[in-house]
Design a protein around this nucleic acid. Structure first.
Lengths: 336, 336
DNA sequence: CCCCGCCCTGCAAGCGGTTGCATTGGGGGG
DNA sequence: CCCCCCAATGCAACCGCTTGCAGGGCGGGG
């Protein structure tokens, strides 16, 4: 009932081998034969069977997209970009969610299920254990990490340390000295360095300015507005309130901002807030932030993986560090 | 080099047929044989070849996830939920982005590329043309729509008309009369009724209250904070400023809120704002909204598709309408 | 004690392409 | 004019698993 390659072959008056080659545009088929085959295929509405093709060739024309979340803006934006890039060249994106929970009891992700399923992998800054990573490597397909580096694989990321420094220096430049940080937990040992590096950047810039922020100024929150708000509420309780907050992401910053306003702080008069990402919403709400080219992360990662799949070994170990930029809007200003 | 079913068969001392059946837990294999095979497979680290399996059986164990966006919160949340539900039962999620642009010149989505690729489809409120939809139907796999209905397929959605009415009635109940709407373009003819229905609900509630909002009170914006802000800026220019705004989504509401505050409006004193979705950020920023169970949409859609794939024809035409609820927070209150 | 049936298992024919290798037909050089 | 080589095709052997059908063994009923 479905039209097979043999049907096309018959219609075009050639062998199935020629049809296979012609439709893939292999050079060993004469231009005219190619045209004949193409026409016949189009006429019959032929579509190659992906499974048959994969089975025979070993290629899946699919790239796995491994991610702990699909719903957070950063991840979602990268995912969208990767999918688009892949689709443009005829590749499919297989979405693979891995346990987002940082808890130890979560069952580990079994990379084996991907064996033979994908030609390459794009891994979004996932909190994977060394074991899980090894499993992925054992797949022996090109892997590109996004938002995190990993030895032996490609990566696309930003310089998180510098992000932390830039954000903090912006605040320092405005005259702030009591600058707090809200972000990731340094006790977290997973493969998720971004929040830690941003925190380190903050600390380094502070120290460089001769300041030594008290411990309570380093607040812990995961990358959500809700926990950002809670962290800010704690900061506002402090006897020595900070005058500015560097949030490790815009999402966190939204929560911080909201808590500040609810506490009667004027922004930026009483409280300056800066985030990281340049979230889609940030421009609309006037949040000052360190912008990073999120979609570009995805695009590049996809391109790298595709290149290596295509045989370009020269890029096999490429590590791209994308530029970030300070975007000044209305949530930062000089302290009172 | 890779371990094949034959290797397992040899190790277990049975035929490949038995291995195949045993690993899938078919009842026609004795319990002890099953155990022997399982052990042998585990021992060898055997993983079934998906392509071979698909080719032979016609099943792909994959469900396509068709979406115009992956990065917007609503879509991303549904996607995450669908993926999780699928993975839990061993199915893969194939992400398929379709042209999000509403423009006519965008090249149409060719459903044929999915032929033989998926066992089912979850389609997120996509602006598909009738032709594109027909192409999908021709795949003859179970299809569940999310956020939009479609004749002849399953669907999971909310009652958008009622959402519009509830939101508006909340505002009316607080004493507002000058209530504006910010949302989708009624000129848009694609398969995307939600914003239109919400608008209709607003209008109906207004009329029911004996009010007839002037045309400029119906502002157009797509589902982003940026355009929501612009729409609000226009509303604020009006000689007769509204005292409340019903935004068709929380994203829009964020833009609206921001514009209002920047214009010096106190919220909710001078301006009440209500959205729709209960976006992840909404709780943190205190946005009053009509909550809908977004992840539940995805979960249910996946379940429906899986059920029909599993042969449960009774659900083939199921249309689920999920409940919504008013969540009162700090952005709505009585007018001055 | 024999025969019938039921359980399990094995056989082998696909599923629909891909590709190494052989084959065919010309064209150009000696 | 003959031979060699290259370009374009065809042949057929897989790729690894599923499944209809047949076969073998064993328990129970007649």
């Amino acid at each position: 009932m479905t039209v097979r390659i043999e049907d096309v072959a018959r219609a075009a008056g050639v062998s199935t081998a020629t049809v296979s080659r012609a439709l893939r545009g292999l050079p060993s088929v004469s231009a005219e034969t190619q045209q004949i085959v193409r026409d016949a295929a189009a006429e019959l509405g032929y579509v190659v069977s992906r499974s048959a093709s994969s089975l025979a060739s070993g290629r899946t024309l699919t790239v796995g997209l491994v991610t702990p979340y699909a719903s957070r803006w950063y991840y979602a934006t990268v995912i969208e970009a990767v999918e688009r890039e892949l689709r443009a060249v005829g590749y499919d994106a297989l979405l693979v969610g891995v346990g987002a929970s940082m808890t130890e009891d979560a069952e580990p992700f079994r990379a084996e299920v991907l064996r033979g399923r994908v030609d390459g992998l794009v891994i979004l800054t996932a909190p994977l254990t060394g074991q899980e990573l090894d499993g992925l490597r054992r797949l022996t397909v090109p892997i590109a990490f996004v938002g995190a580096g990993a030895p032996g694989a490609m990566s696309v990321r930003i310089d998180d340390l510098s992000v932390g420094r830039t954000a903090t220096q912006h605040l320092l430049g405005l005259g702030h000295a009591k600058i707090a940080y809200v972000g990731g937990d340094p006790a977290d040992r997973r493969n998720f360095a971004a929040p830690l590096d941003r925190r380190a950047g903050w600390l380094s810039a502070m120290r460089e300015a001769g300041l030594d922020p008290p411990a309570p100024y380093a607040e812990i929150s995961d990358f959500t507005a809700a926990t950002g708000r809670q962290a800010m509420e704690r900061l506002l309780e402090l006897p020595e309130r900070p005058t500015a907050v560097f949030a490790a992401s815009d999402d966190i910053a939204f929560g911080v901002l909201s808590a500040a306003r609810d506490a009667g702080c004027r922004v930026p008069g009483d409280m300056s807030v800066i985030g990281v990402d340049d979230h889609e919403i940030s421009a609309a709400v006037g949040l000052t932030t360190i912008a990073q080219p999120v979609a570009e992360h995805g695009r590049l990662a996809a391109k790298l993986v595709l290149a290596v799949i295509g045989g370009d070994d020269s890029r096999r170990h490429e590590h791209v560090v994308l530029p970030t930029s300070l975007v000044c809007r209305e949530t930062t200003g000089p302290p009172r």
